[in-house]
């Protein structure tokens, strides 16, 4: 088991009232799952993703990642979990504009305290997996959107995390590069990665093995999809 969420709630205080964004969410993710979470805008997808990715902590409920109780972790421990256990892919890539593709990819290893030589080797390897070994010294603004997202995916996998999280990874891409990126996720999954992907595109969600839907903060579904 990779993670288990039980009765997770997330509230945001809005002035005097409280906004209940996630309501009693239960989610179990097993090794090598490929999960898609669908839902309309504002339904709480990103909020859920932030909780899974340990960027935020739930208002109530328990979240076990591996055998670690995330609710009891300190700031520094959460940073370490994000660094070692989770790979993030964002809709808008979030590459640092002044760094080369290689340096962007190597960044999580820098935070993990890996030596420079090894960092470069492993980053180059990750770039090779996403098919950009010939773009290592390029800056983000010298790359296409699809290439940028592949660099971001390389950064997400460089630390060999247990869980890949992608929040609308094709949201900013045209359909051709979107398809390439989805193909890449398929390959990563085939080679053993556990993936949770957020999307509001049903076609993309179809690619995943399991699909959840979220409406107004309530998560449902979880049946395996048969093609």
């Amino acid at each position: 088991m990779i993670l288990e969420m039980t009765n997770i709630n997330k509230d945001y205080p809005m002035g005097k009232s409280i906004l209940h964004v996630l309501k009693n969410v239960n989610l179990t993710v097993m090794e090598k799952d490929y999960i898609a979470i669908m839902g309309p805008s504002g339904s709480g997808k990103t909020t859920l993703m932030n909780l899974i990715g340990c960027l935020d902590v739930p208002t109530s409920g328990t979240y076990m990642l591996g055998n670690r109780n995330i609710g009891t972790c300190s700031d520094n421990q959460l940073a370490e979990v994000r660094n070692k256990e989770i790979g993030f892919v964002f809709q808008s890539f979030h590459l640092l504009p002044k760094m080369t593709a290689l340096d962007n990819v190597a960044m999580p290893l820098l935070f993990a305290g890996v030596k420079k030589k090894e960092r470069r080797e492993r980053a180059a390897e990750a770039l090779k997996i996403v098919g950009l070994e010939d773009r290592m010294t390029f800056l983000p603004d010298q790359l296409s959107g699809g290439q940028c997202q592949r660099v971001a995916i390389a950064r997400a996998i460089v630390g060999k995390p247990r869980l890949l999280l992608a929040d609308e990874p094709t949201g900013a891409l045209d359909s051709v590069s979107g398809k390439q990126v989805m193909q890449l996720f398929r390959e990563l999954h085939d080679s053993g990665s556990t993936i949770i992907m957020i999307t509001h595109d049903a076609n993309i969600a179809k690619q995943a093995d399991t699909m959840y839907t979220i409406f107004d903060g309530v998560l449902s579904g979880g049946e395996e999809q048969v093609e």
């Binding site: 700031d75 940073a79 370490e80 994000r82 660094n83 070692k84 993030f88 979030h94 960044m107 950064r155």
Partner: peptide, 15 residues
């Protein structure tokens, strides 16, 4: 954004 990204992928406050 740079700071947010760095923290998201595991940079600690100290760094």
């Amino acid at each position: 954004k740079e700071i947010g990204l760095k923290k998201a992928i595991g940079a600690k406050r100290k760094r």
